[in-house]
Design a protein around this nucleic acid. Structure first.
Lengths: 230, 230
DNA sequence: TATAGTTTTCTGTGATCACAGATGTCAATT
DNA sequence: AATTGACATCTGTGATCACAGAAAACTATA
């Protein structure tokens, strides 16, 4: 009994280091940080109310994953991707997130499916309400729920790494698209419900295809935006 | 001119942190660390002749990549994989290392090909000489040269992450196999030269197929060994 | 007024120390 | 003799400080 309690208590050990890491990761994955944004350890430490130490380790971890870059004596920067790197990342994202969607279709049980339906509905209602920040937040929650449903730590790790590099590259384009191409989002929501239904009936091939089509469309929009003269 | 010198000097900035990271990464990728091996920060710091600080950051980075695991107050351990994780890693390794081989076939120039021929020959001669440590070392060098020839930072990053988790899982099996199944290695060398020749003639599909077959055979051997009662 | 040289400030890096939690040792107790 | 308790030792975590390098600001010079 005492052992069970201890096991529960040990589920997650909170460290300032981990807190800083999660915070930065969330900031990257949610698109709050764009390429070129510069940070400093002391500034981040002040924001967290801690010393530089925990922030340092968090930044080091993210730098190891190429999500941040540390400039010798000039701060920390969110790196920009060149065209080749971006293409490589898209290729792998499309494959891995397609894989994860297919696996989700194979592994998802009834509870997971109904949870996904709720999340997809939440995205759509947020879109109708016109709250763009809320749309992005809930959309992110929806997609990660699918990837978690794939029940593969490895897949999740690889997708996280690619997304942390990819999302900042997309956010500027995304902001433009939100203003100019609301039609794109409507289609994306249609894909969402089609994806959930494919998962619901265990159709792995369809789930992969829908997710990959969705990602490719998004990639093309992002590329188109980047090609524009500013 | 002074700028050129500065640019050269800036190519790589040596930090103790990076030194410790590279050292541990090499140890993991070369199979010198097996699952269950425990380390401590102070011990590693003593070995490097530095303070705990650089080692800490290196370990944190590797822990973020799931190559090491830090136990709260009980040291650092090389994690063991369960069957599901191992299967997932194999699946992704086979895909990504196949991708990399195919890309190497598309991108490799004459110099790279002749370098690969040399490295493949070096593996074979080390095998005939019977120096097992040397075989593994040169084999590793050969394979990474192919992956570098793929000219994709992203692919290389993902392969590194998967290999750091996978190699320790394989080493115990590998040691057994070296003793009992030398025939396996002979076949592996044949695959090596076939792979190099596929790359030389720019046959991406063949390069992928050969690499994937090679990896699958190795995976099957490792699994077979793990299934044995000890 | 423009430019070259100096200084000041800010950066990440590394060392040292204090601390709390977990483990293992050893003795006292039943 | 087995078990429980206290204690010593080990661990990673976090804070504080010193330092060298790079950029920026400032000053003196032409």
């Amino acid at each position: 009994m005492a052992q069970a309690v201890a096991a529960l208590a040990r589920v997650e050990r909170v460290t300032l280091n981990g807190l800083a890491y999660d915070g930065l990761k969330r900031a990257l994955l949610s698109g709050r940080l764009e390429p070129g944004t510069t940070l400093t350890l002391r500034q981040l430490a002040d924001e967290l109310g801690t010393s530089m130490m925990p922030v340092r380790e968090a930044v080091t971890r993210l730098a190891a994953e190429n999500a941040l870059a540390v400039l010798p004596n000039r701060g920390i920067v969110v790196p920009a991707l060149d065209a080749n790197e971006a293409a490589d990342i898209w290729e792998q994202r499309i494959r891995l997130e397609g894989d994860a969607s297919a696996r989700a279709a194979r592994h998802a049980d009834g509870d997971t499916v109904s949870r996904l339906r709720e999340l997809a509905a939440a995205v759509e209602s947020a879109a109708h309400a016109g709250d763009l920040h809320d749309v992005l937040e809930r959309n992110s929650e929806f997609q990660w729920s699918i990837y978690r449903a794939a029940q593969s730590r490895v897949l999740l790790q690889l997708i996280e790494i690619l997304r942390m590099q990819s999302v900042p590259h997309c956010t500027a384009a995304l902001r433009v698209l939100i203003g100019e191409r609301p039609a794109y989002f409507a289609r994306s929501f249609h894909n969402h419900s089609a994806l959930v239904e494919a998962i619901a009936r265990g159709d792995a091939a369809a789930a992969r295809r829908i997710k990959q089509t969705d990602l490719k469309e998004f990639r093309d929009f992002v590329n188109e935006t980047h090609r524009r003269p500013r």
